[in-house]
């Protein structure tokens, strides 16, 4: 029998359902010959899961690109603001296309890692207290908890991105350290920021974070053909399970907003266009220049995202 250690963090939630499903499917398909022990924080700190994979401390792990941009420059393309990804299916499609790019594979191989799937996250819309901030003017001087590209975008329009970790977000909101918090819906629920909120932006869609699941290349290559087949063949199913589960959560989301009396703020198209023009374009251009200077095929990666997005939409 073979047991893999899997390092994730926090508690079991929508964000980890595909990993749990994968473990379940693999064990099923191999009659318990190949099992996965999913550890929530016992094996590593979340920011060091790539290090753990590189060391060989565990065989599988989840991480987010924004935690440490310099460890995974190539996939930060997926965290650029206002990419225009509208739903989780599109998020899966663009992520998996980017993961197949040789530059990404190369960079991950430096960590002895191979990405097997993404953890699709919806757009990081913001919750806030007080009057809704539904124009760029009202967002000036707004203290917002936002990281990575989304943080840069808010900075570009004169908001003040503020550094607090996800676990401190509620406290930061309560203490007025931030006025607004940018999260995926499940995180607004599990970190309690929804309980402090008066409003939520339904269509700001500023971007999202990208959190792949990786395996240690040596461990993967040492798998017997049956075990590897069991793993490979379970990935699509695990993602499908994740999407179905998250879909249920999103369905409940409206209901939760109602229950808590949180206003759904719709931002006017011209305001959104202004936001994109001020934030998305310059940040993307700066990213491409910066990454290209480091020898990363940045334009190619960005084009790949756009092409995949178009293809996915055409396919539907």
């Amino acid at each position: 029998a073979l047991e893999w250690n899997v390092s994730v963090w926090g508690k079991r939630r929508a964000f980890t359902e595909h990993v749990e499903k994968l473990a379940e499917l693999v064990a099923e398909k191999t009659n318990g010959e190949f099992t996965m022990n999913v550890s929530y924080g016992g094996l590593s700190k979340n920011k060091e899961n790539l290090d753990g994979i590189s060391i060989g401390a565990f065989e599988m792990a989840q991480f987010c690109a924004g935690y440490h941009r310099d460890k995974n420059r190539t996939i930060t393309v997926l965290e650029l603001p206002f990419l225009g990804v509208d739903n989780l299916n599109e998020e899966v499609a663009v992520s998996h296309a980017v993961y197949q790019h040789p530059a990404v594979k190369d960079e991950m191989a430096q960590w002895n890692a191979k990405i097997i799937m993404t953890s699709p996250m919806p757009q990081y819309n913001i919750v806030g207290t007080g009057e809704p901030r539904d124009t760029l003017d009202k967002m000036k001087g707004m203290r917002v908890r936002a990281t990575g590209g989304i943080g840069n975008a808010f900075e570009a329009i004169g908001a003040v991105p503020t550094s607090v970790t996800a676990t401190e977000a509620y406290q930061a909101m309560e203490s007025g350290v931030v006025d607004t918090v940018s999260f995926a819906q499940h995180a607004h629920l599990s970190f309690g920021t929804i309980n402090k909120a008066d409003w939520w932006t339904a269509n700001l869609n500023p971007g999202t974070v990208n959190c792949p699941v990786v395996v240690n290349i040596d461990a993967y290559e040492a798998l017997s053909p049956e075990n590897r087949e069991a793993l490979d063949s379970s990935i699509d199913e695990a993602i499908a399970h994740y999407l179905a589960n998250y879909g249920e959560l999103l369905k409940k989301w409206d209901q939760i907003l109602d229950e808590k009396g949180v206003q759904k703020v719709v931002i006017a198209d011209e305001e959104l266009a202004k936001f994109r023009k001020m934030a998305a374009d310059p940040i993307r251009e700066a990213w491409i220049v910066d990454m290209s200077a480091q020898g990363i095929p940045a334009q190619e990666l960005y084009d790949l995202v756009m092409a995949t997005l178009e293809k996915t939409r055409a396919g539907n």
């Binding site: 920011k47 290090d51 590189s54 060391i55 924004g66 935690y67 440490h68 941009r69 310099d70 460890k71 990281t147 943080g151 991105p161 550094s163 970790t165 480091q294």
Partner: peptide, 23 residues
């Protein structure tokens, strides 16, 4: 070894690991 994993002479500021907020 932990240090070496975060260090890369060919990268800007020799950095192969950066902080979450301001990099």
């Amino acid at each position: 070894a932990h240090f070496l994993r975060s260090f890369d002479l060919s990268a800007p500021l020799w950095s192969r690991d950066s902080s979450i907020d301001i990099g």
